[in-house]
Structure formats: structure tokens, C-alpha cells
């Protein structure tokens, strides 16, 4: 009797455990979440609002204004300049430096470009805000009456904001939640992709209308930054079939379109959803079917 009870209890416990594992909220964890840019900036301002330091208050108000601008622009020009000067060594910058360096030490043009690109990417990245905070703190450090206290507060603000940021990043909006769970793109995301391809696709206008040859399907494997890792023409056999030259022409135009659009501007989140994507290029409407 006791044995049966134990087995039954164990199985029930296992069942409850698996049911708990199956609940959808657990599936959300590994998913990418879009950056929430504006929230941290506001919080930083609140945390650095020091009542007994009038000069600091002024400075912070200035920073607040600056932050508002940053929220709308997302790319402060000063900041970009700063990072560029840090990373890129241009020949004009300092001739002496170039002379002193060994040939191996001179950054190759490609590397330089890469460095600049990575910095630019950070414009869209919430991590950048940490640096922004650092900037503010450096700025205040020179002018405030009690620099240590202020620094401590700002550091605390930094930690708090980053914690909150992480928390927020793990949360997802209702819309995204839905699309992520269904594995589909939202209408906005789909339209954004379509709009990009529309501009890149030069339809071969001379192509005579043949209903069976008007659809070309191409599968893309994308990297997280939207660049194409691999592409596969789904009807590649048809492409090389004698008598299907028109289809081949259309398929060629599709391939060119995808290459021109590379890298694609992809949704900020849900890489798993769109890392493999199929584009159905249908020319029948344009070629007057």
C-alpha cells in the first residue's frame, strides 16, 4: 500500500514538474528583447538630483536636456566623435605617431572601418547608456562641490539603472510576446522587410508574362546583424531547366535584389524567428498578369 502511494506521489510530482516546465512563460527566457533606450536616462536624472548643490542642480538640468535630445536622436554627435578619435588613427591625425609605429601597428583600412562600424552599432545598443552615464559623471566630477558623494550616487545610479535595464530587457511587450511565441513577424516588421526589398528589386520589365514562371522563392540564412550568411534558391533545378530561361532571368534579378539589400535591416529582437527566412518574389502583379 505504502509503496503504491510513494510511486503515485512520485509520478504526480514528476507530472507537476513537467507541466510547470511546459508553461509558456518559461519559454520566454532565452529570447532576445528589444532595447528600451529612454527609461534609463530618466532614472539617471532622478538619482542625480541633489538638492544642496545648486551648481550641480544646474548641471544636471543641462544633462537632462541633453538626455532628452539623446532620446530623440539616439546618436549624440559628440559621443561619436569621441569614440572615433579613440579608435581610428587617421594618417592626418598625427604624422609622428605614424612614423613611430611599426608597419604592423598601422591599422589596416578594413580594420578601421570595422571599428567604426562597431561603435556606430552601439548607438542602437542600450549598453551605450552606461558610457553616457560615465560621461555625465566625468563632467560633474570637475564642477561639483562634493565630487565623491556625487560619484558614489551616480555609481549607485549606474548599478540600479543597469539592473533595471536588465530586468526590463527580460520583459517583453504584449505584441512582441505574441509574435515571438507564434514565431511570426509582426505586420510592422514584415512591412519593413518588404519596403527594403522593394527598393532593391529591379524587375526585368521585358519579361513576358508566364503565370508558372512568375514566382521565385529564396531562403536566406541571416546573421544577427542582418547580413546574409547563406542563400538558397528553392527552385534552383527549374533555373537550369532548358526552356525556363525566363524563370532564370527572374531568379537572377531576385538574387541581385537580395545582394543589393545585404545587410538587411532586421527586427531588433527575436533572432531565432528570422535567422532563416523565405522571401517569395512574385512578379505576376508587376508584369501584368
Amino acid at each position: 500500500m505504502n509503496r503504491s502511494l510513494i510511486i503515485s506521489s512520485a509520478l504526480h510530482a514528476l507530472l507537476i514538474f513537467i507541466t510547470a516546465m511546459s508553461l509558456p512563460f518559461l519559454a520566454k527566457k532565452p529570447l532576445d528583447v528589444p532595447p528600451v533606450v529612454s527609461v534609463e536616462l530618466i532614472q539617471i536624472a532622478e538619482k542625480t538630483n541633489i538638492p544642496f548643490a545648486p551648481k550641480a542642480k544646474k548641471i544636471i538640468e543641462k544633462v537632462k536636456e541633453k538626455e532628452k535630445k539623446l532620446v530623440s536622436e539616439q546618436a549624440p554627435p559628440k559621443k561619436v566623435e569621441k569614440t572615433k578619435t579613440k579608435t581610428v588613427i587617421s594618417p592626418d591625425q598625427n604624422n609622428k605617431k605614424v612614423e613611430n609605429q611599426t608597419p604592423e601597428a598601422i591599422p589596416l583600412p578594413e580594420k578601421t572601418v570595422k571599428k567604426v562600424e562597431t561603435k556606430e552599432e552601439k548607438k542602437q545598443n542600450p549598453d551605450k547608456l552606461d558610457e553616457e552615464v560615465k560621461q555625465v559623471s566625468e563632467f560633474e566630477k570637475d564642477d561639483l562641490f562634493d565630487p565623491n558623494e556625487l560619484k558614489a550616487k551616480i555609481d549607485k545610479a549606474k548599478i540600479d539603472s543597469s539592473k533595471q535595464k536588465l530586468k526590463k530587457n527580460n520583459e517583453i511587450t504584449q505584441d512582441q510576446d505574441k509574435s515571438v511565441l507564434t514565431g511570426k513577424l509582426t505586420i510592422t516588421e514584415e512591412q519593413a522587410l518588404q519596403a527594403q526589398i522593394f527598393t532593391c528589386w529591379s524587375i526585368p520589365l521585358g519579361l513576358p508574362y508566364a503565370p508558372e514562371d512568375m514566382l521565385v522563392r529564396i531562403k536566406l540564412s541571416l546573421k544577427p546583424d542582418g547580413s546574409i550568411d547563406d542563400m538558397e534558391m528553392l527552385d534552383h533545378v527549374k533555373m537550369n531547366t532548358p526552356g525556363k530561361e525566363r524563370f532564370r532571368t527572374l531568379a537572377d534579378s531576385v538574387r541581385r535584389a537580395v545582394q543589393i539589400c545585404n545587410p538587411l535591416r532586421v527586427p531588433a529582437s527575436g533572432y531565432e524567428r528570422w535567422k532563416n527566412i523565405i522571401f517569395n518574389f512574385d512578379a505576376s502583379e508587376m508584369l501584368g498578369g
Partner: peptide, 12 residues
């Protein structure tokens, strides 16, 4: 499931 996006327009 693989996402499919329909492209029905292009530039002329």
C-alpha cells in the same frame, strides 16, 4: 516554422 515574406513589388 520558417517565416515567409511575400514580395510583390519592385522598382521599375
Amino acid at each position: 516554422a520558417l517565416i515567409e515574406v511575400d514580395i510583390t513589388r519592385g522598382n521599375l
